[in-house]
Design a protein around this nucleic acid. Structure first.
Length: 509
RNA sequence: GCCACCAUCGUCUAGGGGCCUAGGACGCUGCCCUUUCAAGGCAGUGGCGCGGGUUCGAAUCCCGCUGGUGGUACCA
């Protein structure tokens, strides 16, 4: 919707306020993170506020530590909110579980006004009705059994009987909602049932819990939300929400429904079954927050030019409704890996070493309280692996030969680049001599010395460096140039490994 | 079943009637560089789902079909 850069609303004096309202039913999903990101970016780019609200009205699906995870993950990604359950704000509380009296009051007011009504139907009856509708192949929806109960009688029964509160839907006509991305959408009211706003009160509790439909519009209004930007799965219930705002006599916010994120195969929306999908999983697997943000930013949004690298600050300046795409995107990690490599390469040695530390500690390469020597050693290693990593966890495997001893290898492995056993022995002897006589143990100096030795032996560069690479790393493929490896290892360890190679080479024909 | 949304390279996307011989990025392939692997440089591969309209002209507008996805809870 390029023609609606401001989401179709006229810019007024009202400060844009957007929210991210997750349910604490699990660890922060990468798709939810995108939703949070877009809301945050939209708020910032419009000079507005962004708030975090917790929708914890489903007590059965509640996962105790998920709120902490949501907050931590959001923080890790660099998404900050102006108001929220942890920091408060002028329109709190920001957890719905703490707002029960508010919903009670508003929803009962709707009943008083005849815009909603109590329903006394039992679960059993509802199930029965559903079954019959399925059998008859008619629309499956509440049959409005309690809608016709006389208000006075209903009021009396509410005092003694358990009930839910249902919205009184118009039975005919249509409801139009405007979506920033999709334009005006028309829904047939006859297809909308009298949905539950307030659930049956649990015995012993002071207030009944609301459903999403019951509390979300109330909160959005009370919290002065101007733009509701949420997942496409909410699109079908948007007419309900619009009607709710109108029933209360409130302004209807701008709606924008983001396309869902599909699994990598494009079949169905991305779910836990597709493997690790929580932000914390990606972080643990060695993805950088900035890379994750950049990747997810472009999963459903694109800027004016062909730019694909964005910092959060840049994105906060240029993000707008105009760049949103309305078709769903498949979550394929190829590009995420590329982004991650780019961001890793952009880190300074010290920064990358810092990022790597936990993984190195976990591998037992660095102690829990790193010594200065350990840190220095790590710093010397980082340049060798920096441009060879796509995720941080790659490092552990790449540097194993720089920590433990070299793995035992077949002597024949020393015969790289078609050198003969005799030549291999000459190369190792020459290298040993270079090490013994080196005054400057840097990669550069060692390279020059070995190159000279190679010339003397009449060998090509690869014919001396490759056998030595095997001698030093035990592998034919390893990070860094051979001489950089020597420099990192230091004269003593280099010598030790060369001697070992010398012995192996002696056994060769 | 019913309701709704969506549809450009394998993937993410640009495109709003002529600037499209459809652009960029990732991936893939090849070449260059090279002491391995990477990184980097260069080149290449590859797409408008189908059918009807509208128009001098359609990837772009309209209709139908097909396909995909979402919703249909006292879940969110």
């Amino acid at each position: 919707m390029r023609e609606h850069p401001n989401g179709g609303i006229q810019m007024s004096s009202v400060t844009p306020r957007l929210r991210f309202s997750p349910s604490p039913t699990g660890y922060l999903h990468i798709g939810s993170a995108r939703s949070a990101l877009y809301n945050y970016l939209l708020a910032k780019s419009m000079g507005g506020q962004f708030l975090l609200r917790i929708e914890d009205t489903d007590r059965k699906r509640l996962v105790p530590d998920s709120l902490d995870d949501i907050i931590n993950s959001l923080h890790a990604l660099g998404i900050q909110w102006d108001e929220g359950p942890d920091i408060g704000g002028p329109y709190g509380p920001y957890a719905q579980s703490e707002r029960l009296p508010i919903y009670h009051k508003h929803l009962h007011q709707l009943v008083e006004q005849g815009k909603a009504y109590p329903c006394f139907c039992t679960q059993e009856r509802l199930e029965q009705v559903r079954k019959e509708q399925e059998a008859a192949k008619t629309d499956i929806m509440y049959d409005r059994h309690c809608r016709s109960i006389d208000p006075q009688e209903a009021k009396r029964r509410m005092e003694s009987e358990p009930y839910v509160i249902r919205f009184k839907m118009p039975e005919t006509g249509t409801t139009q909602v405007e979506d920033v991305l999709r334009g005006v959408l028309t829904f047939d009211n006859s297809k909308l049932d009298d949905h539950v706003l307030l659930k049956r009160k649990v015995a012993g509790e002071a207030y009944a819990w609301p459903t999403y439909h019951g509390c979300s519009p109330i909160d959005d209004h009370l919290m002065r939300i101007t733009h509701i930007v949420r997942g496409e799965e909410w699109l079908p219930s948007t007419p309900r929400h619009k009607l709710m705002f109108q029933a209360f006599g409130w302004d209807v916010p701008v709606f924008c429904h983001l396309p869902v994120i599909l699994s990598a195969t494009g079949k169905g929306k991305m779910s836990k079954r597709d493997g690790d999908t929580a932000v914390r999983d990606f972080l643990r697997h060695g993805y950088l927050p900035a890379a994750l943000v950049n990747f997810v930013l472009l999963l459903g949004w694109s800027g004016k030019n062909d730019q694909d690298l964005y910092t959060m600050e840049e994105a906060a300046k240029v993000f707008s409704f105009a760049g949103l795409s309305k078709s769903p995107a498949a979550f394929q990690t190829d590009k995420l890996e590329w982004f991650n490599g780019v961001y890793i390469r952009n880190l300074s040695v010290a920064e990358l070493a810092q990022q790597l530390l936990p993984y190195m500690q976990e591998a037992g390469y660095v102690s829990a309280k790193p010594t200065a020597a350990e840190i220095n050693y790590l710093h010397s290693i980082v340049p060798l692996i920096q441009e060879r990593m796509t995720v941080l966890t790659d490092a552990v495997e790449q540097v194993d030969f720089l920590y433990g001893d070299v793995q035992d290898y077949e002597p024949a492995l020393l015969l790289q680049a078609k050198v003969s056993p005799a030549q291999a022995r000459q190369v190792i002897d020459a290298a040993l001599h270079v090490v013994d006589t080196a005054t400057d143990f840097t990669g550069e100096a060692l390279h020059d010395a070995l190159k000279t030795a190679a010339d003397k032996l009449g060998l090509k560069a690869r014919q001396v460096f490759m056998p030595l690479r095997v001698a030093l790393s035990g592998r034919t493929v390893s990070p860094g140039s051979t001489t950089d490896i020597m420099a990192v290892l230091g004269p003593e360890e280099t010598q030790k490994r060369l001697r070992m190679a010398q012995q192996k080479a002696a056994a060769l024909g």
